[in-house]
Amino acid sequence: MSGAPPATKPVMSSSPSLWTRLSNPSHFMRWSGTLVPWLTLLSALLLAVGLYLAWFVAPPDYQQGETVRIMFIHVPAAWLGVFFYGAMSLSAIGTLVWRHPLADVAQRAAAPIGAAFTLVCLVTGSLWGKPMWGTYWVWDARLTSMLLLFLIYCGLIALWRTIEDPNRAARAVAILTLVGAVNLPIIKFSVNWWSTLHQPASILRMGGPTIDPSMLYPLLVMIAAATLGGSTLHLYAMRTEVMRRRVRTLTIREAERLDAGRPRVAPAASLPLGQPL
């Protein structure tokens, strides 16, 4: 095509951008490798302080007694369950808009951690429910919302495991994550509505804003420790995922290299006519 006229327009192109250059996993592995031991140490310390405050400093509740201490695990777990969904939604935007490889890694690493903490929240909530409500499960609005969040996490993880090609899987999961993110407030709202329609009013509300400062500070420390510890776990998981992809790429390369050593098949022209590619 000699002397391309100005009418020529690119149909599609992939040009280098700042994001492409920033998305270098080598850089990520370097700084995360330095950071991770310190973060581990710091979150362990914070967790020790938080647990000490929760066990020995915070007073037992005048109504619930010692069982209120479940709250110090339950509430941070619930927060992390939501926190990691938020992290996944941001990563999903990174995957879809900038096609940033690390965004996909971050999203994939966050899903099992978020699901695990949501499960912890459900289990502790259920254990807390037994002494408080006399039964392990009550269709309380908050527990129900968390259950649905857990189911959405399960769906996302299942979708990942179904699609073989990592790039396609990343895209599909990112779309579903964002659809879920739009839906979560609606689910929360509708479950609250449903709950007020059906729930007997006698049930004791958990937590609430009227929490006493003597319990609030240990709880805040625990939430901070959980956030830091969860983020550290996330970094670990991201490093594992980067390495897993490197292994995949190297394996494919090795297969290509070995394939090249083998004599070529008969030239294409002698193949039967109309053989599909």
């Binding site: 649905l148 189911l151 769906g155 299942a158 879920g180 689910i187 509708s190």
Partner: peptide, 20 residues
């Protein structure tokens, strides 16, 4: 099967308001 797992949690609000 995976389709059902993916979309059923998202259908909960519709079910709640439909029935109510």
């Amino acid at each position: 099967l995976i389709l059902a797992v993916l979309v059923l949690p998202l259908m909960v609000p519709t079910l709640i308001f439909g029935v109510s």
